[in-house]
């Protein structure tokens, strides 16, 4: 039964990776082939990826799509077991076990005349298609993205191509302005009193801070929520979030919601549901990688690819947790 299932699933769908790019130790881009999805995808939507048969279903925002090439681009932060394992195994020519989408309601990128698009942490790439869509819709677009330091900055050229103004914020001031994303927003609000809308994607703390900043100015604020998901079809209720006192399912009712209505504390609480299990999975996996690595070092002469897991393995928990830190946000 097992063996047959494997053959079947392979024949069923192939999601071949055609491009891979590493922006830093923790951020990487995967572009895979899926013409139908490229045709359907709209800004603000996401996919659910299963990288292998024993894998977890993880939601990832569609960071770009190319209808001519028939591809979908994801930008992923290696934060835990699945995303780090994918960082190792997902290479050009390999295929993902399953990708379903586009999921969620597309964002409304028309109507607004002046828009601020904010991306921090794992939200930098996902904000890009929105900025581009707003621009295509004729809006004046102010892009604000945050990173810890200069080396982590990516897609600056892509953003500049679709933003009328583009502000990079770094924690250490090594690129753009020194400070958090909220400093960038302050700047934008100060210079543009006529902002109609702000869209923010990033860690909940960051989105919470953004919503708090726009509230006094009465600026419409849209945030893209990232609760833990399983099916992404509205069937499990795992992704439930509180919006203005009502419970909504982020996968089918969202993922975008009115930032002034979102109960961010509830979201942050629910993101911690599997902390212990996530730690176990990561430790176990890191250990098995370390052992594999030792065997390899002993046998082969070492060729060290740019995304070598070594630096991850020396300090498995030193990476920023995208959900807890406001870093770059």
């Amino acid at each position: 039964m097992q063996g047959r299932a494997k053959v079947k699933s392979q024949a069923m769908s192939r999601f071949e990776i055609v491009t891979r790019e590493d922006f830093s130790d923790v951020t990487y881009l995967l572009e895979f082939h899926h013409p139908l999805m490229a045709k359907a995808a709209r800004p603000g939507q996401f996919v659910i990826v299963m990288s292998h048969e024993h894998g977890e279903r993880i939601p990832l925002t569609i960071a770009d799509f190319d209808r001519n090439k028939g591809t979908i681009t994801l930008v992923i932060q290696a934060v835990g077991k699945t995303t780090r394992e994918m960082q190792q195994t997902c290479q050009v020519g390999t295929t993902l076990y399953g990708v379903v989408g586009p999921m969620g309601n597309p964002s409304h990128t028309s109507g607004a005349k002046k828009v601020v698009c904010v991306g921090g942490g794992l939200g930098v790439a996902p904000i890009y298609p929105q900025a581009r869509a707003f621009k295509e819709g004729g809006a004046y677009v102010i892009g604000i993205v945050g990173f810890r330091t200069r080396d982590l900055v990516f897609w600056e050229d892509k953003f500049r191509a679709c933003c009328d103004e583009f502000i990079v914020c770094t924690d250490d001031g090594s690129a753009g302005i020194k400070g958090l994303i909220t400093d960038g927003i302050k700047l934008a609000i100060a210079t543009h009193p006529d902002i109609d809308e702000l869209v923010a994607i990033g860690p909940p703390v960051m989105m919470k801070a953004c919503a708090a900043m726009t509230q006094p100015h009465n600026i419409k604020t849209v945030v893209c929520l990232n609760p833990i998901m399983v099916d992404g079809t509205g069937m499990c209720g795992g992704c439930r979030v509180r919006i203005g006192g009502q419970v909504k399912f982020a996968c089918v009712d969202g993922p975008e919601f009115d930032g002034h209505q979102v109960d961010f504390d509830d979201l942050m609480l629910r993101l911690r549901r599997f902390k212990a299990e996530e730690k176990t999975a990561l430790e176990r996996w890191s250990e098995s990688c370390r052992m594999k690595n030792e065997i390899e070092t002993a046998s082969l002469s070492r060729q060290s690819p740019a995304y070598s897991p070594d630096n991850l393995l020396s300090e498995p928990f030193a990476l920023p947790d995208p959900f807890e830190e406001v870093k770059g946000g």
Binding site: M235, G237, R240, V247, D266, R270, R272, R273
Partner: peptide, 18 residues
Amino acid sequence: GYPSLLGIPGDSLGGVLS
């Protein structure tokens, strides 16, 4: 699909699921 929710205090705590 779409499970009905409890709608009582505490129903979004970590250990509450459908």
